[in-house]
Amino acid sequence: QLWTVEEQKKLEQLLIKYPPEEVESRRWQKIADELGNRTAKQVASRVQKYFIKLTKAGIPVPGR
């Protein structure tokens, strides 16, 4: 299922709330739990694509 604008905005906020961890899967699980309707795997996939998009555009990656 496609990500809504609201989900993307919340994801961006949660990336700041939950900074990078030694075991990133824990971070994705915390974010997924707060989103409520996404799995950690879906979050990880979305974040990877989002970070690539930001990097290509020369925009700083949130939480890094």
Rank of each mutant, 00 (worst) to 15 (best):
K9H: 09
L15I: 08
P60Y: 04
G36C: 06
A32D: 00
R46P: 00
K9D: 11
L15W: 03
L54F: 14
E34Y: 04
L14I: 00
V43E: 00
R26I: 15
F51T: 13
V43D: 00
S25M: 14
L15E: 00
S25H: 10
R46M: 12
K49V: 03
L11K: 01
E24T: 04
K17I: 04
I16M: 15
Q48E: 12
E34H: 05
I31N: 00
Y18A: 01
E24S: 08
K17S: 05
A40T: 12
T55W: 05
T39I: 02
W28D: 00
K41R: 10
G36S: 07
E12D: 11
Q8I: 09
P62K: 13
K30L: 05
R38N: 01
L54G: 15
L35I: 07
Q13A: 09
F51I: 10
K10A: 06
N37M: 07
Y50M: 12
E21R: 02
D33Q: 08
L11Q: 00
K10I: 07
E24V: 07
I52K: 13
L54T: 15
D33M: 08
R26G: 12
V61Y: 07
L14R: 01
L54D: 15
K53G: 14
A57G: 12
Q8C: 03
F51V: 10
P62G: 11
F51P: 14
L11M: 05
A44W: 07
T55Y: 05
S25N: 10
R38A: 06
K10C: 05
L14T: 01
K17Q: 08
I31P: 00
T39Q: 02
I59F: 13
E12M: 04
T39Y: 01
E22T: 12
I59M: 14
T39L: 02
E12C: 04
G58F: 04
V47Q: 02
Q48H: 13
R64M: 13
V23M: 15
D33E: 09
P19S: 06
K30P: 00
V47P: 00
K49S: 12
K49R: 09
I31D: 00
Y50A: 14
K49T: 13
L15V: 06
I31T: 00
Q8L: 10
Q42L: 02
P19D: 04
P60Q: 10
K10S: 10
I31K: 00
Q29D: 12
L35Y: 03
E12K: 06
K17L: 07
K56R: 13
R46F: 13
L54N: 15
Y50N: 14
I31M: 05
K17V: 06
R38L: 07
K49F: 03
P19T: 04
A57C: 06
Q48L: 05
L11W: 00
L14V: 01
K17R: 07
I59H: 14
N37P: 05
S25P: 09
V5I: 09
P19R: 06
I31A: 01
E12N: 07
Q42K: 01
L35C: 03
K10W: 03
N37E: 09
G63V: 09
E24L: 07
G36T: 11
G58R: 08
L11G: 00
F51S: 13
K53E: 13
N37Q: 10
K30N: 05
I16Q: 11
P60H: 09
P62Q: 14
W28P: 00
R64E: 15
R38V: 13
V43C: 02
E34G: 05
Q29G: 09
R46S: 08
W28C: 02
V61Q: 15
D33H: 14
E21G: 06
V43R: 00
I31S: 00
R27S: 02
Q42C: 05
I52C: 14
K30I: 04
K10N: 07
L35E: 01
V43A: 00
Q42Y: 06
G63N: 10
A32Q: 02
E34M: 06
E22Q: 11
L35T: 00
I31V: 07
R27A: 03
A44F: 12
G58A: 11
E22C: 07
P60W: 05
D33Y: 07
G36Q: 13
A32G: 03
V23N: 10
L15N: 02
I52R: 14
L54M: 13
G58P: 10
E21N: 03
P62M: 06
L35D: 00
R27F: 02
P60L: 07
P19V: 06
I16S: 09
V5F: 10
K17H: 03
K49L: 08
Q42F: 03
V43T: 01
A32T: 00
R26K: 10
W28G: 01
L14K: 01
K9A: 10
W28Q: 02
R46E: 12
A32H: 00
T55D: 11
P20C: 06
P62I: 06
P20M: 11
L14P: 00
K56I: 03
L35G: 02
W28Y: 10
A57Q: 12
T55L: 07
K53A: 09
T4N: 06
K30A: 05
L2V: 08
Q29T: 10
W28E: 02
V61W: 06
T39R: 01
P60V: 06
Y18R: 01
K10R: 12
P19F: 02
K17G: 01
R46T: 09
R26P: 04
V61A: 13
V47E: 02
I59T: 13
K30F: 08
R46H: 13
V23T: 14
L15F: 03
R46V: 11
F51Q: 15
Y18P: 00
L11T: 01
P19K: 07
K10P: 00
S25Y: 12
K53H: 13
R38K: 14
K41S: 13
L11I: 04
A40V: 08
Q42G: 04
K9S: 08
V23K: 09
A44D: 04
I52P: 15
K10T: 07
K30W: 02
K56M: 07
T55G: 12
P62E: 10
P62W: 06
V23R: 08
K10M: 10
E24P: 09
Q13D: 11
I31L: 03
Q42M: 08
P20E: 15
P19A: 12
T39S: 11
Y18Q: 00
G63S: 09
L54H: 15
Q48A: 12
K41D: 12
K53V: 04
R46L: 11
G63D: 14
I59Y: 08
E22Y: 04
G58W: 03
V5A: 10
T39A: 02
F51A: 15
Q48F: 06
K49E: 15
A40R: 04
Q13C: 04
V61K: 12
P60E: 11
A40L: 04
I16R: 10
V47G: 03
Q13L: 12
L11H: 02
E34D: 05
R64I: 08
K9T: 14
G63A: 05
Q13K: 10
V47H: 03
A32E: 00
S25L: 08
K10H: 13
V23A: 08
P60T: 08
D33S: 08
D33N: 10
Q42I: 02
Y50G: 14
T4I: 02
I59E: 15
E21V: 04
R46G: 11
Q13T: 12
A32V: 01
K41L: 12
A40H: 03
I16C: 05
R64K: 14
I52D: 15
E12I: 06
L54Y: 08
I52H: 15
E24D: 12
E12Y: 04
Q13N: 12
R46W: 10
P62R: 09
K9R: 09
R64D: 15
F51R: 13
P19G: 13
A44I: 05
A57L: 11
K56G: 09
T39N: 07
R38I: 11
T39P: 03
W3R: 04
Q29R: 08
A40C: 09
L54W: 11
V23H: 10
A32R: 00
Y50Q: 14
I31H: 00
Y18S: 02
G36M: 05
L54V: 11
K53T: 14
G36F: 06
E34N: 06
E34T: 04
K49Y: 05
P20A: 12
